[in-house]
Design a protein around this nucleic acid. Structure first.
Length: 871
DNA sequence: ACATCTACTCCAATC
DNA sequence: GAGTAGATGT
């Protein structure tokens, strides 16, 4: 291993741009906000700054605290830091999510805040179940007032209160006050709801404490309490760094302040207000301003140089986000070429849209000669339900795809079944685990019996598990629907596991024993149609358990705390399970072979060479029920800025929403952006002749494909994909073109539609070798983003947009060209040969992409005449 | 207590 | 067009 040395330090400092350099070298004691636009290298700056603090300022790694929101971000930071300062020092840095950090210290100092060290982390499902129980007594009352209040709704009210640091008492008091301030004569269903929620909040807290359990919000709240009230818990700290600061909620901000207290202002945060898309999850962008007030002398450094995307993509993205007039003006520079103008298209139906996407992906792969693979494409959606039409279109075209996100590994029932037993072994008070495990496998112990058990436990101040064990041992009378004999195998199982755990049996072995004891495989076979994959998941849990064990030995850090702290391997495994949101591990190789379908939210922080955003329509984007339109706009901005070289937006005129077909209009975000900055989008699908291909390969840092390969693939594509003119289009679909003059794309002109021969021949037949999309989470490696140059240019004069409809016997993609900046263009369908070569590519100059540079004329627009495209 | 049917809802999702 | 809470039946 190469040890970091001064030489090394200089070489990584040299690779930084000016702003990055300034941020890394910024005086440690002066509070710093790094406002980092998309693709501006914020992780690089963060890790470099940590390295610099350690290597140059000689701050011990173990007194640096780096906090992230996700495990993924934490892992990435760890990996990158490792390359700078080596494994040893990296592992000494206190790095992790807010929750993991709190959990770590709460285990050590549990008594200080009045909890037990073996507390269990309660996840949303379990919280919901607790709340469902507490909600029952109110059912009649709510029904009488005709109010429907679901457990999830109550939980989100409570969670929102906790995210702000509002206790149950305060919540109730606030509501009373608000109520008094109002004329009492109004009846407001909100009153009743607030009152019920207040009461449940109080009971919910009690239930958690009785279960010796903390929910996710509690981890932070108890963390704040610990760090503010108990100096030894923070005395180690000399610098705090927070990633994605715009996503912090009030409690997380307080947490940061508490941990940073002994540092006297040695705080570095990184964030981007433009990428704040989690307001609905209690994130407070206002924390940026708050920090500047609380930490006097906070300085701001802007990272505005983008290393990810082409100029044209950034221009369109900025045009969208800058429509928010209340936004802090910021810009983005790129050293990349202008590249291909983002495409904006309209379609008559979601099927037509989906069809276009599928065929266009195929066409791009072909015309890039294989430089782009399936894994280079992402389809980003406002919400996952929109994926239906797209998934089936991709399937028809035999394009493999994977949905990013989906159900999470640790939320699967087979995983929770196993964890419940182990949680019970570690923490006998944890009621949610008891109520689940007691009937796995089914032991015919019903709701009534469990209720009676819990009631008895409350009365006798014992844990429900104690009560069950005592009944089983005949130390206590049985309850009515005789439970004693039914509970036998359960008690025996728990006792056996408990014994094994105290003897130091490792978590993987514990799970193996448990599976045998309850014959879990048989249970799955009996109850689950998909028992095989569920059983695989159980095996994966065992693997995970063995990895945690491994990690722990490496990562264990000294915290100046009681060394006899009770972190057993089992406890560490359980905690890792609860605090990890990791999806299924899909191999990186695998994800390269699949088109990614994801929500825009889940795409944050990721990047793809080609990004396609369908359903950019009013009601969908912005979503009709949003309470912050600007946040929706930023979400679209985030989605657009994921694209490295090609970007597509599309909308339809009619879409089925919940069984009903609704007329749709183009999103106001795009309509207003195109009105103000014409030329940021084109109807013309990119033709990718050698110069355009060169831009793509340069931005991606990949070698270009040989021309022969391109020709071969294009010919292949033509063979398999047929293009039909709408005149003889049996399917009756036709494209609708976006019309900037109308603003809303309703200009339906019969033009062309894609129908691939494969989809025609395969419709109904099962000859497709496309597998149904997997609902599994692929892992994404970070992509390279080398710099290259040359902005394209051109302005357009009032020419007409044209559409190319290729000759019928030939395979062709329709090409439409939009060349009118401010004036309406006319989209014509014809048999005219395709115009269209991308804008000239010039090189070498760094280009400012602020909106200031984009006058009426609209730059970067293809000028009237084009050479025939490659395809 | 469990199986089956019906009616209703339907945004995003970190830890 | 699916997932599920709730009601009903066995």
């Amino acid at each position: 291993m190469t040890l970091p040395n001064p030489q090394h330090l200089h070489s990584f400092l040299n690779s930084l741009n000016e702003a990055q350099h300034k941020a890394v070298l910024h005086e440690p004691a002066a509070p710093l906000q790094i406002l980092a636009g998309p693709g501006s290298g914020k992780t690089k700056v963060l890790t470099s700054r940590i390295a610099y603090l350690i290597l140059h300022h000689s701050i011990p790694a173990s007194s640096i605290c780096a906090v992230t929101f996700t495990n993924k971000a934490a892992t990435e930071m760890q990996e990158r830091l490792c390359k700078l300062i080596g494994k040893q020092r990296t592992s000494a840095v206190r790095m992790g999510t807010f929750h993991a950090l709190c959990a770590l210290f709460l285990r050590k100092f549990s008594k200080v805040v009045g909890i037990e060290g073996n507390f269990t982390v309660c996840d949303h499902d379990e919280s919901k179940k607790i709340i469902a129980g507490l909600l029952k007594p109110y059912k009649d009352f709510l029904a009488s007032k005709d109010i429907s209040l679901k457990d999830g709704t109550v939980l989100s009210y409570i969670s929102r209160a906790k995210a702000k640091g509002t206790t149950a008492k305060e919540f109730i008091a606030e509501h009373k006050k608000a109520n008094n301030d109002r004329r009492s004569s109004d009846f407001d269903p909100q009153d009743d709801i607030q009152r019920v929620v207040g009461n449940i909040y109080q009971d919910y807290e009690k239930a958690l404490r009785r279960s010796n359990s903390l929910d996710f919000d509690d981890l932070l709240l108890f963390g704040v309490k610990l760090f503010t009230e108990h100096p030894p818990a923070t005395s180690w700290c000399r610098h705090v760094l927070v990633d994605e600061f715009q996503d912090t909620n009030v409690t997380q901000y307080e947490l940061m302040r508490a941990i940073a207290a002994p540092t006297k202002g040695c705080v570095t945060v990184v964030g981007d207000p433009d990428q704040s898309i989690y307001g609905w999850r209690s994130a407070e962008v206002g924390n940026l301003a708050k920090m500047r007030k609380d930490f006097t002398g906070t300085e701001q450094i802007f990272l505005e140089e983008n290393y990810r995307s082409t100029g044209a993509i950034l221009k369109a993205s900025l045009a969208i986000v800058s429509q928010d007039k209340s936004r802090i003006p910021k810009t983005l520079l790129t050293s990349h070429p202008l590249g291909t103008i983002p495409v904006l298209r309209s379609f008559p139906s979601e099927q037509a849209e989906a069809n276009f996407i599928a065929v266009e992906i195929k066409r791009l792969v072909a015309s890039m000669g294989g430089v782009l693979r399936w894994g280079d494409f992402a389809i980003l959606l406002r919400f996952s339900a929109l994926s239906r039409a797209i998934e089936s279109a991709l399937q028809k075209e035999a394009i493999p795809s994977a949905v990013l996100g989906g159900h999470k590994f640790f939320e699967r029932q087979e995983i929770k079944d196993i964890l419940a037993y182990l949680q019970l072994v570690d923490n006998p008070s944890f009621v949610p685990a008891l109520t689940r495990a007691i009937n796995i496998p089914s032991r015919a112990i019903g709701e009534k019996s469990i209720e009676a058990l819990i009631a008895r436990a409350d009365k006798t101040k014992m844990s429900p598990l104690d009560v069950i064990e005592r009944i089983y041992d005949s130390h206590q009378p049985d309850i009515k629907p005789a439970v004693k004999h039914k509970v036998g195998p359960f008690v025996k199982t728990v006792r056996a596991l408990r014994k094994l755990a105290t003897e130091g049996t490792s978590p993987p072995d514990l799970i193996q024993r448990l599976l045998a004891l309850i014959q879990y495989e048989d249970h799955l076979k009996k109850t689950q149609p998909e028992w095989e994959s569920r059983w695989e998941n159980v095996q994966e849990l065992i693997t995970f358990a063995s990895e945690v064990e491994h990690d722990v030995n490496l990562v264990d850090v000294d915290t100046n705390a009681d060394p006899s702290s009770s972190d057993t391997p089992l406890r560490l495994f359980l905690q890792a399970s609860m605090l990890s949101s990791e999806g299924d591990n899909q191999s990186e190789e695998d994800s390269k072979e699949k088109v990614t379908i994801s929500t825009c939210h889940a795409a944050k922080g990721l990047e793809w060479p080609v990004v396609i955003i369908p359903a950019v329509e009013q009601g969908t984007f912005p979503f009709y029920r949003t309470d912050d339109v600007q946040e929706e706009r930023r979400l679209l901005y985030v989605a657009c800025t994921r694209a490295q070289t090609l970007l597509y937006l599309s909308h339809v005129s009619k879409r089925k929403v919940g069984g009903e077909t609704k007329t749709k209009e183009i999103s106001e975000f795009v309509a207003s952006a195109t009105k103000e900055h014409s030329g940021i989008f084109t109807l013309r699908t990119p033709q990718l002749p050698p110069p355009a291909r060169a831009v793509v390969t340069r931005v991606l840092g990949r070698p270009d494909a040989p021309e022969a390969e391109v020709l071969r693939r294009v010919a292949e594509f033509r063979k398999t994909t047929r293009y039909l003119d709408s005149a003889d289009d049996a399917v009756g679909q036709s494209e609708v073109l976006y019309h900037p003059a109308l603003g809303m794309g309703g200009n339906a002109r019969p033009t062309a539609t894609f129908v691939s021969s494969s989809s025609m021949t395969m419709a109904g037949a099962s000859s497709s070798n496309a597998k149904p999309p997997t609902r599994r989470t692929p892992k994404f490696g970070s992509l390279v983003r080398p710099a290259s140059l040359h902005p394209g240019s051109s302005s357009s004069s009032g020419a007409q947009g044209q559409i190319l409809a290729p000759s019928k016997q030939n395979v062709e993609t329709p090409v439409s060209t939009l060349t009118v900046p401010a004036k309406p263009f006319v989209a014509v369908q014809s048999g005219v040969p395709p115009p269209g070569v991308p804008p000239p590519v010039t090189g070498g100059v760094k280009r400012r992409l602020g909106m200031s540079g984009m006058g009426r004329g609209g730059m970067g627009f293809p000028n009237k005449k084009f050479k025939p495209p490659i395809l």
